[in-house]
């Protein structure tokens, strides 16, 4: 146990256990407060180094604090995720078997959909197709809970997609079960579920915020692989990275 691992690290791990997922600014203030309360020299901006020290202890427990941008607006998010699929997972969970089955079907629909999102009405209609019958109300409450706990995301038009926490947690499951559908982003190499796909070669796919970064200085953007004109409109997200 390296002496660099202090009560401040334990406090941050406990906060991640309690909350599961946090925005970047909350992680920064958490680490700052934890260091201050434990009399540990403040890490300042080196939050990722602090998180790395925690992860070096957590990996033995098949747990990890991962970082990813929300696909919609590029906001940076940290989450404490499970990295192994062992059967203890089926023993208890704060979701009922019915809710988990619904979640599994929603993930399946989102991953196999054209543009990585599904309407909330389609999600509720899934309730009838489940093995374990679930009422529309129960399905509605389940979806509300999945969004509140940031496994899923819902936008203004009611479209449901996988939130960053959901993608980080299920990465292994997605890559192995949906290998045909799961693509990594041409620019940042991270998984991209909802993004822009080149309609020329159908190979290059970009996160919205990565398309913004790649094409921001180019008047008529072309696909970096097949040179076909990039037909999607280039978003102007404030959340996205200007430079990485």
């Amino acid at each position: 146990m390296s002496k660099m691992y202090t009560d401040a690290h334990r406090l941050v791990v406990q906060a991640f256990l309690a909350r599961g997922v946090m925005d970047e600014k909350d992680v920064k203030s958490l680490v700052h407060t934890a260091c201050e309360r434990c009399g540990v020299p403040n890490v300042g901006e080196r939050v990722d180094n602090f998180i790395h020290q925690i992860n070096s202890q957590l990996h033995k427990m098949a747990m990890e604090i991962k970082k990813k941008r929300e696909e919609e607006d590029g906001a940076q998010v940290y989450a404490l995720v499970q990295t192994a699929e062992h059967q203890i997972g089926k023993i208890i969970n704060n979701y009922s078997p019915k809710e988990l089955e619904l979640f599994k079907e929603i993930v399946s629909k989102v991953i196999t959909s054209e543009n990585g999102e599904v309407s909330s009405t389609d999600c509720l209609n899934l309730a009838d197709a489940l093995e374990r019958r679930i009422t529309k109300d129960e399905a509605q409450n389940a979806v509300k809970k999945f969004v509140e706990e940031r496994w899923l995301r819902i936008d203004e038009e009611g479209q449901i997609s996988l939130a960053a926490r959901g993608i980080m947690e299920l990465q292994m499951f997605l890559q192995e079960k949906y290998s045909d559908f799961i693509v990594t982003c041409y620019l940042c190499q991270d998984i991209v579920v909802k993004g822009q796909l080149c309609d020329g070669c159908g190979k290059v796919k970009l996160h919205n915020f990565c398309a913004q970064r790649l094409f921001q200085t180019r008047p008529n953007p072309k696909c970096p692989a097949c040179e076909v004109n990039w037909s999607h409109d280039i978003p102007h997200l404030n959340g996205g990275p200007v430079e990485e």
Binding site: Q82, K90, E101, S108, T112, L170, K177, Y178, D180
Partner: peptide, 20 residues
């Protein structure tokens, strides 16, 4: 109190791979 660990991976059966 000790805060618990909430997770999703491994809490449901994976089922067969889905092909395109």
């Amino acid at each position: 109190r000790a805060p618990p660990f909430h997770f999703m991976l491994g809490s449901f059966d994976r089922g067969p791979p889905i092909k395109k």
